[in-house]
């Protein structure tokens, strides 16, 4: 079975470490916040200028001046800080964020990522994604392994305009956990009940399959 959105978030959350500052993108990455292990301290960075993002507010505590990068109303945790956009991206570009999790349309064996622009469709903009992928050392991309038409999103060469070049090393899809090494995707783990053959069939880019590929356990 392909992983559910929550299972993908749970798998990403296993990469968290105590004391990490983490930036979570919109979509599945946002769900990771729901699965931070008990007893672990993680500080969420929101690129509009908040370090220490908390839960959504109660109705009576909604504040128009307190939002996250998805423009959702949020709260701040004790010990948080609030700052300007320039300060926020200084943290990001300066490599101070320990982990960045974001979605994508395509990733290739060179670690290139395409996540913001489909030619001839409406282009809304890259927001902070280009800064995040260029600035972070530790990035996890979350996406479905193939499109609804069955087209692989794990490619030899990205077909869409890039968000960043040579910056991705870890990819979690609904089928597998893969790491990019030596111009190939290395299959590290597979979703429960998903065969290596299915993953091979849905991976267009060069894939290295170790002798033993463990199933994820939930």
């Amino acid at each position: 079975m392909a992983l559910s959105r929550d299972q993908m978030a749970i798998r990403v959350a296993r990469e968290l470490q105590d004391g990490y500052y983490v930036n979570l993108g919109i979509g599945i990455p946002t769900l990771v916040a729901n699965f931070i292990p008990d007893g672990m301290q993680v500080m969420l960075q929101s690129e509009n200028g908040l370090l220490g993002m908390g839960a959504f507010p109660s109705v009576e505590n909604v504040d128009a001046d307190m939002i996250n990068a998805g423009k959702q109303t949020v709260t701040a945790v004790p010990g948080s800080s609030i700052f300007s956009s320039a300060e926020s991206f200084a943290m990001i570009r300066g490599g101070h964020v320990d982990l960045t999790v974001l979605g994508a349309f395509e990733v290739d064996v060179s670690g290139n990522i395409a996540s913001w622009m489909i030619p001839n469709k409406l282009i809304k903009g890259m927001g902070g994604a280009m800064d995040l992928v260029a600035g972070a050392d530790n990035i996890i991309v979350t996406m479905t392994h193939a499109s609804k038409n069955g087209d692989s999103k794990l490619l030899d060469v990205c077909s869409l305009p890039l968000t960043g070049k040579g910056c991705i090393k870890k990819v979690l899809t609904d089928l597998a956990w893969l790491e990019i090494e030596n111009n190939a995707f290395v299959l590290k783990e597979r979703a429960p009940g998903v065969s290596v053959e299915e993953i091979k069939a849905k991976t267009q880019g060069r894939l290295i399959v170790p002798e033993h590929v463990p199933e994820m356990v939930f």
């Binding site: 839960a55 959504f56 507010p57 109660s58 109705v59 909604v62 128009a64 001046d65 939002i67 998805g70 423009k71 959702q72 109303t73 949020v74």
Partner: peptide, 10 residues
């Protein structure tokens, strides 16, 4: 101060 995306815990 219009809110674009009002999200609450309830």
């Amino acid at each position: 101060k219009r809110i674009e995306n009002c999200t609450t815990s309830e």
